[in-house]
């Protein structure tokens, strides 16, 4: 008796579709993002985007045939599922990091670094007092070591 066909692997299909869309976007922007004198300059971008498209189609095909994981080892064990509160904390942590990148020109590395660390510590579940002490200590030590001792320039903000 022939083995039953494997059902499509939805997560693998999603990955393939995502990359196919990305490949389409990459191909579409090439004519507009390369100047008139750069015909040769389009060769490698075209190869890269074309290959991305081709491989994502293969990924889609493999997922539809249920072979998305045909040459794979079992995926590594994932961490236990998160509660809604934990997801919110993780999302907030990502937001804090992203916001810090945009606030760096305004607040400078000292204020941004200290504030980001305190918030991340609190979101991970460290108590406020240790969070503040460690964040301030790490910021000060790294600033002194990297900027003052090693002479590596660090961003100064408008406020500090």
């Amino acid at each position: 008796m022939a083995p039953a066909a494997a059902p499509p692997d939805r997560s693998e299909l999603f990955i393939g579709l995502g990359f196919a869309a990305l490949a389409g976007l990459c191909l579409a922007v090439i004519p507009r993002a390369i100047g008139p004198y750069g015909a040769e300059a389009t060769i490698l971008p075209m190869i890269g985007a074309g290959a991305l498209g081709l491989f994502s189609l293969l990924q889609i095909g493999a997922a539809l045939l249920g072979r998305g994981a045909s040459d794979e080892a079992p995926p590594p064990p994932l961490a236990p599922p998160l509660t809604l509160a934990a997801w919110l904390r993780l999302g907030a942590a990502a937001g804090v990091v992203a916001l810090s990148a945009w606030l760096l020109p305004v607040l400078g590395i000292l204020l941004t670094g200290a504030a980001m660390q305190i918030l991340l510590f609190l979101l991970i579940g460290i108590r406020p007092l240790p969070a503040i002490i460690i964040a301030l200590a790490v910021t000060a030590v790294l600033y002194l070591a990297i900027h003052t001792v090693l002479g590596v320039p660090l961003p100064a903000g408008q406020l500090w």
Partner: peptide, 29 residues
């Protein structure tokens, strides 16, 4: 899987093209 590795490689090649073209100094992407 090998397909995923190839997708990552293709994306890396594309991202490596961003910037001035090494031979013509044309702006790319």
């Amino acid at each position: 899987s090998i397909i995923k590795g190839l997708m990552a490689t293709a994306l890396g090649l594309y991202l490596g093209c961003i910037g001035l073209d090494p031979l013509t100094a044309e702006r790319r992407l």
